[in-house]
Amino acid sequence: MAASYARELIATRELLLNLTMREVKGQYRRTALGQLWSIINPLATMLVYTLVFAFIFRAEPPPGDPSGLDLYPLWLMCGLLPWMYVTRVITGGVASITNNAGLITKVYFPRMHLPLSVALSTGITFGVELGVLTIALWIFGGFPLPWLPLVVQAMGVLAMFATGIAMLLAILNVHFRDTQHFVSILLPMWMFLTPIIYPISLVEDAAARAGEWILQVYQLNPMLHIVEVFRALLYDNRLPGAVESLAAIGSASVVFAVGYLVFSRHERRLAELL
């Protein structure tokens, strides 16, 4: 059943592209700055976090090795941009079924294209952001270019992870509309539990004082490993460690597989539940 659903998805791939274009084109219509907004947003977030965490809290991430980069804003963005992608895909994906109720109850098409189109259209924004970040890293002395092919693969892993969660929660949201509100509370918590705006060394220090188990529990978070992979490639300009890479790929595959199975099993009944 899962395989025949996959065939149907592939046969209707043009619909996926059109739904993606709908998201991309519709998003910034009637704004003066248009697609520039997708750059302004992360820039503004970068300014705020740099002000608060580099100047007030004095977070000091280790310099890039071997890149030699030592700039908090750039270090931050190497982790924050992947995180923002996850946030947008999950929030957008969770609501993608309920927001398109009008379409689902009137036409048949493979419903999975809705969360997938969110992941793709957000992926375009993410790609542009990473492009700008790459140029900035280059200007400030790093040399990320040779690592870009691996960055693209890491983006794929990240997309699988985010889409898997989004598909799972989208189904749950049809049954319990509370889900989308829970998600908006849980996502910021999850961010602060991941070493995105502060270096993991702070948690290691805390674990050394209070007990090693803290670090072990902390490392169960798949996003920690995915962020490490992005930082290794972009900020340090080196191959990510085997443990991080395997943890990232493994968790993304499992999460995507579960999301896919749950979604494809429930999608036939979505129209009557909406």
């Binding site: 209707t12 043009e14 619909l15 592209l17 059109n18 739904l19 274009m21 709908r22 084109k25 519709g26 219509r29 009637r30 009008g102 379409l103 009137k106 036409v107 098409f109």
Partner: peptide, 25 residues
Amino acid sequence: LEVGSGFHPELSGRENIFLNGSILG
């Protein structure tokens, strides 16, 4: 079952023809 389901209000008629066409297969 309903005409124009899937039209995006901010997109042009031309863009919506392509969008709606692909929704209908």
